[in-house]
């Protein structure tokens, strides 16, 4: 049984007919070919698949695409305007907040949401804020620095 849905992704409405069990992460990646959203685990732990659903950060591996019917989704591809990066993206580049880059899209989407909730977070608040995103390369240090730099740039 397929279900008709329309999801607005990065500002464009996408009507589609999907299996109800299709995860939002796979809808973005395999139906819309937006492969910037990564899938790093199967138990909602790693956060690599984080996107914004109606403006809030969610793990898109734990949302069915049908649940996003009628919703607005922003993915990593929807952040930069051409070569003009958001403060968070710029912070990740400037502060060397990524190595292999696999966790990065999810980490950036969470960081964006964190700064929206708390524009001037302390180091502890940053660390707690990204506790739902695993990174195996950086030891998080430069990610914390990157978010701090983005907060500063935004103030």
């Amino acid at each position: 049984m397929s279900t008709e849905i329309t999801v607005t992704v990065n500002g464009t409405a996408h009507p589609a007919s999907v299996e109800p069990r299709l995860l939002l992460a796979h809808f973005l990646r395999d139906v819309l070919n937006l492969t910037g959203t990564h899938v790093g685990c199967d138990t909602s732990q790693c956060g690599a698949c984080t996107v914004h659903l109606n403006g809030e950060a969610v793990k898109s591996c734990t949302v069915f695409a049908v649940q996003a019917d009628g919703a607005e989704v922003t993915t990593i591809e929807g952040l930069a305007d051409g070569d003009s990066y958001t403060n968070v993206q710029q912070g990740f580049w400037d502060e060397h907040g990524l190595q292999c880059g696999f966790c990065t899209p999810g980490m950036i989407m969470t960081s964006e949401a964190l700064l929206k909730q708390n524009p001037d977070p302390s180091e502890d608040e940053i660390r707690a804020g990204i506790a739902g995103n695993y990174c195996r390369c950086t030891g998080y240090q430069n990610i914390v620095n990157a978010i701090g730099a983005a907060a500063k740039a935004g103030s």
Binding site: V58, K59, T62, T110, L114, G132, N133
Partner: peptide, 9 residues
């Protein structure tokens, strides 16, 4: 509870 993303949902 859990993490920022889970708390949103």
């Amino acid at each position: 509870v859990a993490d920022l993303q889970v708390r949103n949902r």
